[in-house]
Simulated scan of single mutants.
Amino acid sequence: MARPYMNKIARRKMLLETAAVIVDEYGWNTLSMISLAEHGKVSRQLVYQNFDSVNDLTEQTASYMFEKLYTQTHEVLVSHTDDIVVAITKAQQILFSFPEGRVQALWALLSDNTSHNTPFSAVSRRYRKLISDLYTPIISRSMNLDAQHAGQVAWLLMMSFWGGQQLIHDNTISQARSLELIQWYIERFVAGCKISNEAS
């Protein structure tokens, strides 16, 4: 049976969704032009028509997987600029709505610590900066920090944020307990910053 016709945009979206599923199920190191062609049941020629190289495929897949999380998190942070605890708690709840494989794939992307010379590490650094920049404004306001300091704190907080997710994955704690710990952690972090600012 012939594959239904898809326009260029729909075809590219189908390929990216297929690539995301490969990463969700098997990890980033299994994503290749060949695996995408096989899983997508398309020709290698079609894959190469849409992606210049496996590095381009990896970067475009990361962008596709990351976009929904980024957009929804941005909306939450903009809607709760006056309460960092509520904002970050709701942001973590967004993460809970994603399939387990997708969460683990995004974590693998963000936590990459391989050589800085690899294309994957460059993508990883780019998305770490995007996340830090996303949280910098609310952290800067809540903790009275300059942008550079707030950006550094943002990533440290995000590591605990994703660390909670990893504890859930390991069946060490529940989602509810993870949220409680994040709230406890941030409340004390903000309170400590206020005391430090008042003292100085």
Rank of each mutant, 00 (worst) to 15 (best):
D112W: 11
A150D: 04
S111N: 11
P137Y: 14
D112F: 10
Q165F: 13
R128G: 04
T114R: 08
D146Y: 14
S160E: 13
A147P: 01
I168N: 09
T136S: 08
Q148Y: 13
A154H: 12
V123W: 10
Y135W: 13
S132F: 12
K129P: 00
L110V: 12
Y127K: 01
S121T: 10
I168V: 11
V123L: 01
A154N: 07
D133K: 07
G151T: 00
L156H: 11
K129V: 08
Y135P: 02
M143W: 03
V123T: 05
L145E: 09
R126T: 02
G164F: 04
L110S: 09
D133R: 08
R128H: 06
M159L: 04
I131Q: 03
S115N: 10
S124D: 13
G164H: 05
G151C: 00
S111A: 08
P137L: 04
S132H: 07
Y127H: 07
G164A: 02
I138M: 05
R125E: 02
D133H: 11
L156K: 06
A122V: 02
Q165E: 12
L167V: 07
S124F: 14
L167E: 14
F161E: 08
H116R: 05
R141D: 15
S140V: 02
P119N: 05
Q148K: 07
S115T: 13
K129A: 06
L167P: 06
L156Q: 07
S160L: 09
S124Q: 14
L167M: 15
V153L: 06
N113Q: 13
T114L: 00
S124I: 07
